[in-house]
Design a protein around this nucleic acid. Structure first.
Length: 554
RNA sequence: UGGGCCGUCGCCAAGUGGUUAAGGCACCGGGUUUUGAUCCCGGCAUUCGUAGGUUCGAAUCCUACCGGCCCAGCCA
């Protein structure tokens, strides 16, 4: 590592851990965890957290657990648990221990009893409304509950009754006894356990009460001997409570909570609630719609784990509220696919081009490179015949300035083939161009034409060999940089988020591609064979991202 | 009006009292190119939210102010 590289990827969490290692805190051990609640699908914001937690563990030769924060059975399900595991594995990470907060329900209950015995927790029988009133406001202190000074015995008995299921939901709640006047609302006697008569995926009907986040999370971290508990900024206010819980109780570990800024991405919505709306309102086709920022959606779109990890490294970790430019994400996938995807030819909006200087039965097999910078990718045969398809937009009867493609009387190179000159434009009764006639220069195969420069190169597919395919062109789901700020997302939606090219034709090799294989369609972009719908009989490709195009920008 | 946090180039982001204020993205040139791709070369903050102060020396320390984000679920 050179001196200049030494602080590449540096961030405040790494600095902090480095300092901990210097001082011998945690005996130099690093243990993290990724703690999703199984109540929705993971999205790119979670990818940031996953990369941070697993990546930090890797960097310091530590461990990272996958822990499901399953304390609210009313919202959680097995479907999400499985999807989350798949997503983490697809990204290429392996967890050390697979944990569930529910694994600790017995211990958590004992800890709660301990708190009660210490006089630091009590059963409150106020209604939720009364509790809200007594909590005070942001600027006014709260008031103490009339149940705050119940005896330890009374609390113990009531809490046991709650556990047994003697009471209705909402009748009682176990609260920490901290400080109703604290400026930090989380410290105004926060709830620890509520009655919830809902069966749990893993513990079944065993529990009628379930522990709440602050109590559960801090103790789960301590129980798993987590050293650095990384979470997002909104939990900063909870840290005093996190520490309070651990300080009152006798726990094996002494974790430290460290907060970092969650991801914000231009043109993208990243709140579970809003994402669920997109799915239930059928704005998109499902959690794996290629326009969704979910891991499943990104995967179907054609993003690779490597590109997503690269993205997380590029955006860094700080406590700044920030919004990442979409161009960063796009650059990551282009970088990956530029070096790793083979090249193929596909015509999205075909127009027939007849080379009149060739005999009707002309047949010629050319050899095309699979990758211009990588010999090892090999070559493939490519059929050339008298009639080929080219992209409709690669011909212009009245060309705009600096146009480098085919124009009437002009020349253009058929990629990997001859230079052709446009001699005739065939139109239908409606005046639409239906066919182009050209002649070819036989002395231009593999060599530059004599005495002139032909700058334009156009991709093509032999009409005889072309395979019809469906190609979907994706754009951002929203057309405003911050859809979360839009009044309703209906009017922030991009009407052109997907364009389906039903008449596209692709070279034969593409139809035979395995699902989920990625290619560069030369001159048009990077594409992936759809992992669900693609087959040799009905090829379906999704555009991952366009090629960078300086000309289109001008 | 309470509590917590944040402000370094258009967007990210290193930087922890002495550096010519890293790097990436974007942008602007120029070169190579049978992808208007890739690749290569060059440019891009006398300035670190603002104003004072401490110091031989400040983005880094102090003070005040300005701007932004989060918190009043028996959600996580």
């Amino acid at each position: 590592m050179t001196e200049q590289d030494s602080n590449v990827g540096a961030n405040f969490i790494r600095n902090l851990i480095d300092a901990d290692q210097q001082s011998g805190k945690h005996e130099g051990r690093v243990a993290t965890r990724f703690p999703p609640e199984p109540n929705g699908y993971l999205h790119i914001g979670h990818v940031k957290s996953i990369c941070l937690n697993f990546g930090t563990a890797q960097r310091y030769n530590g461990t990272c657990n996958l822990r499901f924060d399953d304390t609210n059975p009313a919202k959680e399900s097995e479907e999400y648990v499985n999807a989350i595991k798949d997503d983490v594995q697809w990204l290429g990470f392996e967890w050390d221990a697979l944990c569930h907060a529910s694994d600790y329900f017995d211990k958590l209950y004992d800890y709660a009893v301990d708190l009660i015995k210490q006089g630091k927790a009590y059963v409150d029988s106020s209604t939720p409304e009364q509790m809200r009133e007594m909590r005070g406001t942001l600027t006014e202190p709260g008031t103490e509950s009339p149940y705050r000074n119940r005896t330890v015995e009374e609390n113990l008995e009531l809490f046991e009754g709650m556990k047994r299921g003697d009471f209705d939901e909402g009748a009682h709640i176990l609260r920490a006894k901290i400080d109703m006047t604290s400026g930090n609302i989380n410290l105004r006697d926060p709830g620890l356990y509520r009655i919830l008569k809902v069966p749990h995926v893993r513990t079944g009907e065993t529990w009628k009460i379930y522990p709440m986040y602050d109590f559960t999370h801090s103790l789960s971290d301590a129980l798993e001997n987590i050293t650095h508990s990384l979470c997002t900024l909104e939990f900063e206010d909870h840290r005093p409570l996190y520490n309070w819980v651990i300080e009152q109780l006798d726990t094996p570990g002494n974790p430290q909570q460290i907060e970092f800024a969650p991801l914000n991405l231009e043109y993208t919505l990243l709140s579970k609630r809003r994402l669920i709306q997109l799915v239930t309102n059928k704005v998109v086709d499902g959690w794996d719609d290629p326009r969704m920022p979910t891991i499943l959606g990104l995967r179907r779109r054609g993003y690779t784990p490597a590109a997503l990890k690269d993205f997380c490294e590029r955006i860094g970790i700080t406590k700044n509220d920030s919004v990442i430019d979409m161009a960063v994400l796009e650059t990551c996938i282009r970088d990956d696919l530029n070096t790793n995807a083979e090249r193929r030819l596909a015509v999205l909006d075909p127009i027939k081009l007849v080379i009149t200087s060739l005999p009707e039965d002309h047949a010629q097999t050319l050899t095309f490179q699979n990758h211009p910078q990588n010999e090892a990718a090999g070559t493939r045969p490519y059929e050339f015949t008298r009639e080929v398809f080219i992209e409709r937009e690669d011909f212009a009867e009245v060309p705009p300035p600096k146009y480098q493609r085919l124009v009437p009387g002009g020349e253009v190179r058929l990629r990997g083939c001859y230079v052709v000159k446009c001699t005739d434009i065939i139109k239908n009764d409606a005046g639409e161009i239906v066919e182009l006639h050209c002649t070819h220069d036989p002395d231009t195969l593999g060599k530059k034409p004599e005495g002139r420069k032909v700058k334009g190169v156009v991709h093509w597919v032999s009409a005889k060999h072309a395979v019809p395919a469906t190609v979907r062109l994706y754009d951002t789901l929203f057309n405003v940089t911050n859809p979360a700020a839009a009044e309703s997302f209906e009017d922030a939606l991009n009407p052109d988020s997907v364009t389906v090219m039903n008449n596209a034709v692709v070279e034969p090799a593409l139809a035979k591609a395995e699902a989920e294989t990625r290619f560069q369609f030369e001159r048009t972009g990077y594409f992936v064979a759809d992992r669900i719908e693609h087959s040799e009989a009905t090829p379906v490709f999704n555009r991952v991202v366009t090629l960078r195009d300086v000309w289109a920008k001008k």
